[in-house]
Design a protein around this nucleic acid. Structure first.
Lengths: 237, 237
DNA sequence: CCAAAAGTGTTGCGAGTACACCCATGG
DNA sequence: CCATGGGTGTACTCGCAACACTTTTGG
């Protein structure tokens, strides 16, 4: 027992701590995960969740923000901690413990960026993730479960939507996440508990009645949360 | 017990990874957290959450089991991962990132053990935790929140109870956890969804009508979970 | 006109709440 | 006898699911 512990840690890779940042986006009715193609061994040229070692003076949320910003230039959005993974065999080159964080981003804000990097990064629908590097499939599944859990209680789905969205956009997020359909009338009734502002604007160029655009009343929401007056919850099944 | 190797920190662990194991028990209507008195600097003789560095060949769940077993001799119970903490300043002697795990134990099984160590360990009601070492107050609060969250969905409250318990014991756990009272008739109806076996046994030496003792029908519960037929959920407020 | 999706109102069932009442024990 | 908490039945309410129906656009 004492012997095992006499490992020296001067080799950065022999025992280190990293953070994986799972970036989720929503488009065309699907929730996507941003993957990067690895540029070095191990698993060179295979898809992976973006991540990095944590710097010595960095708190975990800082590291998550940094990774998100380096990759997408996005700043100032909420990051959520999911699970931490520490199987000694998870990294072939040494002991690397990793914490998963996730962010929900507006894919629209990233269009041109995504094109410029299109050979090294890719959005993949969460239910169609290919085989990934390391134990990243397990991390993706686990983190998506945490995301789903939070979706049932917190109003984080809006982070995936553009500022102006239709009620149906929102419903699609839930239907895709839980692979389950809701009645649109009843779904709208659930939303009564979330403060939304109906804009004087409608969808365009649709060959059916255009839907009204809404935005989240963030101020009102903060107030409600402050006075513990926020009670949205979505029952599955 | 824990931290007997803290003195090595400066030469050995300039950057290390530990695991804190929050052990919860239930007695006399209160949920308690097991704390240990630190035997070395920093924070010598102050209360702390039991924890240890993770061994090089150990997965996180293994480390959590080990810490639990070393301290209490308890084996084979469920351990749940909570949050991971990595503030660079959280440990005065170096960078230590720590993952919190929690276990729910039967306090009755630990009576004699608790007495034999009574000067170095102590159960403290979760709502009366004193000032702890490091950032352990934050860890305790955060982990208790995760525990509460799980209590609303999963049948883990039984892990806190002796094999034979009364319905009121169970209700007390929820009422203490959420600091909220439930109507006893209605509380019983919620439990209809959890398979319980009513034993031909009653409380003794109580100066009122003795309550029936129940036990959890674990087999039935596993079956229900397997066929996704388990749907207990407790609404707060 | 029709197709398609937006958006709303109504009804009926069921879960959950409030509350009343009876039961078993010790003192 | 009382006090205390165990245990159960009932009636009412409110949320929610099902479903029908109207509205607005493009073609």
């Amino acid at each position: 027992m004492e012997n095992k512990r006499d490992h020296k840690l001067d080799n950065f890779f022999s025992y280190s701590f990293s953070l994986d940042c799972l970036i989720f986006g929503f488009q065309d009715g699907k929730i996507n995960l941003l993957l990067v193609k690895r540029e070095s061994e191990p698993f060179k040229d295979q898809w992976a969740i973006p991540g990095d070692l944590i710097y010595p003076d960095e708190d975990l949320p800082n590291a998550a923000s940094r990774i998100l910003k380096d990759l997408t230039s996005i700043e100032g959005i909420d990051l959520h901690q999911a699970q931490t993974f520490g199987n000694p065999a998870r990294h072939p080159q040494g002991r690397v413990i990793t914490s998963a964080y996730f962010a929900l981003v507006r894919m629209d804000d990233l269009q041109e960026y995504a094109r410029s990097w299109s050979d090294r990064i890719q959005w993949m629908p969460i239910y169609s993730i290919p085989r990934l590097s390391f134990d990243h499939n397990e991390i993706a599944i686990s983190t998506f479960e945490v995301l789903k859990q939070k979706l049932t209680i917190y109003p984080i789905a809006f982070d995936l939507l553009p500022e102006k969205f239709t009620i149906n956009n929102l419903q699609e997020i839930y239907e895709y996440a839980f692979q389950q359909d809701w009645d649109k009338a009843n779904f709208r009734k659930k939303l009564k508990k979330i403060p939304l502002i109906k804009l004087n604007e409608k969808q365009k160029n649709v060959k059916h009645r255009p839907a009204s655009l809404f935005k989240l009343d963030s101020e009102q929401l903060s107030k409600m949360i402050k006075r513990e007056d926020y009670s949205f919850s979505l029952k599955i099944n």
